[in-house]
Design a protein around this nucleic acid. Structure first.
Lengths: 229, 229
DNA sequence: TTTTACGGTCATACTTCTGTAACATACTTT
DNA sequence: AAAGTATGTTACAGAAGTATGACCGTAAAA
């Protein structure tokens, strides 16, 4: 999406400036503020297409603002990318919980930020009911079917949801815990290693069609769905 | 379209009566109410093919009802013709905005109204009287009969409606709740599992003709009607 | 009134899916 | 190379989801 409007909420002027420059260079419109209060007005008023939100804000915290936005029907569809310091790993979980669509750890390169923004916009702005196609692998949410080069692929409900999540969140490594949160749902108590088994089942279903290479192991971290490497 | 079901929402009894008479003379089924509240129940329950909606209603306004209908996935395909007084020209714009398919200005002749209704129905619904053919399976809405390769297929009324819905909504997975809403009507209290039984009865009716494979189970989700796989 | 057809619910038989544990294998570190 | 850690694989028992036949009340037809 060209000329999307991005709102940057961060209390450090320098960071906002840095982001603004690189985003504008990429053809995105950029507005910014240093506090949640103003941020909310800007959101209601200017209706940005995406929000970059620092997790540590003076006054109302970022997480609080995110919750508030996700609760309100008029704003809950605006995607949020949270910006978090490396040390605040825990926040990632809270963040995804509060409805963030992705997170980027500081410090980050503008290239990475940009690619994340584009990924999120592609995901949220696309038709939710449109079939997703990756190489010859297609997932059609309407008929609830998977096809590999036109041939049906048989898999269980959990594998379907897992694949659906992967296909809408490509090129990013997810920990087992994150996958459990996103695919199983946040309030389920399930062993981490169970994810391995379902990954295995998903690969097994894809293998006959030669698409199992898309489900990749990221050792020490978790799994990733990608056409690269 | 013969025997289409029309819902008239207008607070003036006289107008409803006038419309009802002329529509019924033209072979259309006609139900009516004077308020948005009841209108919504009737829509959910009886699933009319088209709605004639007065813009000025006591209580919930017509425009509000229209918006609500267009927001809801189960009702947003029902066409709406708004009835508006000559002086309220502005409303036309608002109305079309809210999702109305056409508008008629009061006072209007019954001939004009009828031709508008037919136009909208032709446009939106296609010809609902045309038989639907899937592989060798044919549903004829006129005679209200099912044939498989020219041979009659015997089934109950509910199975007929279920099959009719399926044949007009192919390749799409529906939950039991959705099927209840669409085939039974939204305000009916029936167990989810009842759907299973009617699916069974439908399959049983189709099985001797080898068309039961069209009714497919989508485990964990519901059912689907499709010629594929 | 009796008969028949139909719709909804239940109980039961089946089928498929799920999470875990246990063991195998691969990669890292020392 | 050995030990330690992470991931892959398999088997299995319990859980969850479906299929099916029977039952009963109701309403229409005979």
């Amino acid at each position: 999406m060209v000329n999307a409007k991005v709102l940057v909420v961060d209390d450090e002027e320098a960071i906002r400036e840095m982001i603004a420059v690189s985003l504008e260079m990429a053809g995105l419109e950029c507005i910014g503020t240093d506090n949640a209060q103003t941020a909310h007005s800007l959101i209601v008023d200017k209706r940005p297409d995406i929000i970059l939100l620092d997790w540590m804000l003076p006054g109302t915290s970022g997480i609080e603002l995110a919750r508030r936005l996700k609760r309100d029907e008029t704003t809950n569809e605006i995607p949020i990318i949270m910006l978090t310091a490396k040390t605040e790993e825990d926040n990632k979980i809270q963040g995804l919980d509060a409805g963030a669509d992705d997170y980027v750890t500081k410090p980050f390169s503008s290239r990475e930020l940009l690619s994340r923004i584009k990924a999120v916009l592609r995901r949220t702005h696309g038709d939710k009911n449109k079939a997703i196609l990756v190489e010859g692998l297609a997932l059609d949410p309407i008929s609830h079917r998977i096809t590999a080069d036109e041939r049906p692929v048989d898999m269980g409900p959990t594998e379907y949801r897992l694949l659906e999540f992967f296909m809408t969140h490509q090129d990013r490594a997810y920990s087992r815990a994150q996958l459990l949160d996103q695919v199983w749902g946040g309030n389920v108590y399930v062993e981490d290693r169970t994810v391995d088994v379902h990954i295995r089942r998903l690969r097994k279903a894809l293998a006959p069609h030669k698409y199992d290479h898309l489900v990749q192991t990221v050792r020490g971290t978790g799994y990733r769905f990608s056409t690269k490497f």
